[in-house]
Design a binder for these strands. Sequence first.
DNA 1: GAATCGTGGGA
DNA 2: TTCCCAAGATT
Length: 390
Amino acid sequence: MPRGRPAKPKLAIAVPAIDPDRRDRLRLALLDWYDRHRRVLPWRAEPGRPADPYAVWLSEIMLQQTTVAAAGPYFRAFLDLWPRVTDLAAARREAVLARWAGLGYYARARNLHACAEVVADRHGGRFPDTEAGLLDLPGIGAYTAAAVASIAFDRPTVPVDGNVERVCARLFAIATPLPDAKPELRARAAQFAHDHRPGDFAQAMMDLGATLCTPRRPACHRCPWSGDCAAEAAGIADTLPARLPKGDRPVRHAVAFITLRAADGAMRIRTRPDAGLLGGMTEVPGTPWEEGAPWDQAAALAHAPLSPQGWRLLPGVVVHVFTHFRLEARVMLRHLDRAEAAALDAAEAGETGDPRWCPPQDLGRAGLPSVMAKLVEHARIGTGQPGLPL
DNA sequence: GAATCGTGGGA
DNA sequence: TTCCCAAGATT
């Protein structure tokens, strides 16, 4: 037993118990609204049909911090390529990462594959059907465990995402700003847990937040809870939930080196380390990304592949915004003849990241994250050949 | 527990 | 242009 300070019991925040009659009234009103306005989404089973746990899980991972519009095409492509979790588990990890390219938050893709392997190898290809069992899997946190448990397995639990936080903040007029309000909002939402249609209720809460109880200009007059919402009554729905002000985004500077083999137009690429930003994804070589001033050209060229000579600085700056910083990158371009390309191969033989040549027609399959695709496209414009296969 | 981790679309 | 934000998880 660990000594010292006893483990802090993670007690749920105490909130006033909701009146059971009001809870049931709200639940039924929302479910009725859901039955009439239910959205058709690629991962959603027909009404009355059982949900496929694999499809539910796949969609929930893709939808983390991601819009429905962005996730849709990826969901269809994944389900088409890998119809069952065992198919995904058997796929090569690089293939999964390449197919995820462009969707962002690449740890999701690494965990997606790891999770599929666990389900295939240790759970006989079936997802655990309890919230606790799901929570043990890689990439599944509190929200996703509750979402899959309720939607796929009819467990009486309420997943709390950004939509549900907003809906509850308004319904109960909770003025505490996010993220401080999260424990209270979770406790409020949990009081809606019920055996009756838990999966539909979960999706109804999220649909409500996505279509009526929106961040700006909520459509309270069309809300199934109109007349029963504290924020609406107080006329403050559009001000909730409050948020703590965010810090400003620093700027990082970089120089990317696009190396083309003159003979066939192949581009030099490599794989980033598994940990950290864009982990495991394909990149073009470049300087470190550093805050402060833009790179001095000579200093940047010290990081150039092969040698500092022969590079051409392309006009313009590529700007890409990440969650916690903004990248401003210049692009340098160089064509290598046969001898130089061979010298580069020799110089980089055995380096980590498997530096390699990628023929232009294979660039699409390489799975470049968006920032890398932007850099490559910038080089194409620089070479006067924009819009070639990517 | 704060920091990290992408991207694209809309106001 | 800039800001916000979207079905969060991990360390």
